[in-house]
């Protein structure tokens, strides 16, 4: 089974079919555009491991489709350009902020940085010098600037105060309304409610029970 028949069977959104790794065992999840999902579960239940497995950072087995394209049919870098993962603790490959922004002409995150209250940060500043919250917002701005088809956010506001959390939610809200495919790991039920996310619970690496219903009417 390949090609057009498969593509027709997997029309839109992010569809996970039986994804297993050393830590997780997920039988089926379908996140549709405009039906974003809050991934909830106790610490150590496998939220980050599931997100890492989806972008293929850890060894895993399983089939995933994004808007009709199968993960196994794409090289991993191409898959990661289509689906962006922003970890809870962002990583930095360079010393300075500017090392992560791309060349001046290609700096696509400038507007997002301004919206997230990071206008004061200059490219020559060492990343180490930023506060935890500034680093988290910068990583989010960089992730969003890649304009991927789907977004996986791991506790994106965990290190932020109330005002900055509101900035992030105000930024995401219209994107979700426009049909962004999103899975957000969160500990905050209020945030999930404010953003209109459907609850997807992971327990000891497994997802079962109350999955979002693709045909449902929402909450």
């Amino acid at each position: 089974m390949t090609g057009s028949t498969e593509a027709a069977a997997h029309p839109g959104g992010l569809e996970i079919r039986r994804l297993t790794s050393a830590i997780i065992d997920v039988s089926g999840v379908h996140v549709l555009p405009g039906r974003p999902v809050a991934l909830v579960g106790a610490s150590g239940s496998g939220k980050s491991s599931l997100l890492r497995a989806i972008v293929d950072l850890d060894r895993n087995e399983g089939d995933i489709w994004l808007n009709g394209v199968r993960r196994a049919d794409l090289p991993a870098p191409e898959w990661r350009r289509r689906i962006t993962y922003v970890p809870a603790e962002p990583g930095w490959w360079g010393e300075r902020v500017g090392d992560h922004l791309g060349d001046p002409g290609e700096d696509r995150s400038a507007d997002l940085r301004r919206v997230l209250g990071l206008s004061h940060i200059r490219p020559e500043q060492p990343v180490e010098q930023l506060s935890t919250g500034e680093r988290q917002r910068l990583a989010l701005a960089l992730g969003l600037s890649r304009n991927a088809e789907a977004l996986l956010l791991d506790e994106p506001t965990a290190a932020l105060d109330e005002d900055n959390r509101a900035l992030v939610e105000e930024l995401l809200d219209p994107m979700l309304a426009a049909g962004l495919v999103l899975i957000m790991a969160t500990h905050d039920p209020e945030q999930a409610r404010r953003l209109g996310l459907e609850r997807l619970e992971i327990v000891r690496g497994r997802i079962g029970g109350d999955q979002p219903d693709p045909a449902g009417t929402g909450t």
Partner: peptide
Amino acid sequence: RRRGIEAHLLTGI
């Protein structure tokens, strides 16, 4: 530097 290298990989390189 695993975290940093993985962040770089996540940009699609």
